[in-house]
Simulated scan of single mutants.
Amino acid sequence: MKSTFLIWLMAVSGVCAQVIECPKSYPPLDTELTMIPSTHKGKGLVSARYLSGASMFIGEFNDGGELQGLRKDVKGGYDIEVPADTRWLVCFYGDSQAISWWEELKLEPKSTSCTVQVRSAQPQRPGAVEAKLICK
């Protein structure tokens, strides 16, 4: 009876979590740029890049404010505990992390803590990294 209740309790608590995942690649396809530098003729292109990591930010878009939470190394990656009052999940793409996707968060008011989970079963294989935010 106790084990049945424990399994039920774990299942119910897992349902209450809010999960936001980073896109596996960004941009999703190679993208032609529309902005042309002055005094130049030609075309710009941003190639699609695979996810390489993630972090949490507060404040305005692209204005710093990275949250430094408690990092815990786990098999295949790491978890970072952050407060639930964060504003952005930022997903990084490519080796230099020069491309980023800023996901503005609309967290449940009842959320009290969040964890950024970054995992990669095969770090050298493109597209192997997964990142998500889990808030409870």
Rank of each mutant, 00 (worst) to 15 (best):
P83F: 03
P109N: 10
E32G: 04
L9C: 13
W102H: 14
V74A: 01
A17V: 12
E60C: 04
Q97T: 14
L51Y: 01
F92V: 01
L9I: 13
Q124C: 03
S52W: 00
L6V: 12
K132A: 15
E104P: 05
Y93R: 01
P109Y: 08
E66H: 04
R87V: 12
G59R: 03
K75V: 06
K24G: 12
F61A: 14
Q124A: 15
I99C: 03
D73S: 01
A54K: 05
F57S: 09
C114R: 00
I134A: 12
V74R: 02
V90T: 04
G59C: 07
A131C: 13
L6W: 02
I20D: 08
Q124K: 13
G94S: 03
M1H: 04
S25M: 14
K43N: 10
L6M: 06
L105W: 02
E60Y: 04
P37V: 02
W101D: 15
A17M: 14
K106P: 02
D95R: 00
D30Q: 11
C114Y: 09
E103M: 08
S55R: 08
R49G: 01
T34D: 11
E103P: 00
L51N: 02
T39M: 06
R49S: 04
M35E: 15
T34Q: 07
D85L: 12
S13V: 13
Y78M: 09
L67Q: 11
M10E: 07
A98Q: 02
L33N: 08
D63Q: 13
I99W: 00
P123G: 10
I99Y: 01
E103C: 10
L105S: 04
D79N: 15
P27H: 05
I7V: 13
P27L: 12
L45T: 10
Q122N: 13
A48Y: 00
I7Q: 12
I36R: 00
P23F: 05
C114L: 03
L105N: 03
V46C: 06
E81F: 08
G53E: 13
A84F: 11
V90Q: 10
L67A: 09
D95I: 07
V116N: 09
G69V: 12
L107F: 09
Y26G: 01
K132S: 15
S55N: 11
M56H: 00
T34S: 03
G42K: 04
Q68F: 06
I99A: 10
S111F: 06
S3D: 15
K41D: 11
M1R: 00
S111G: 03
R87E: 15
Y50Q: 07
P27M: 11
G53K: 00
T34V: 08
R87L: 11
S47L: 14
E108W: 01
C22R: 02
G53M: 12
A84V: 14
P23I: 10
D85G: 12
G59T: 10
W8D: 05
W8C: 15
V118C: 10
G14N: 08
T115E: 06
M10H: 00
L51M: 05
L51E: 09
G127N: 09
E103Q: 13
M1F: 05
A121N: 09
Q117T: 13
E21S: 15
E66G: 12
T4L: 15
S52K: 03
E60D: 15
E32L: 05
Q122C: 02
S113N: 02
L45P: 02
S55A: 02
L45W: 04
G69N: 04
L107N: 06
L70M: 11
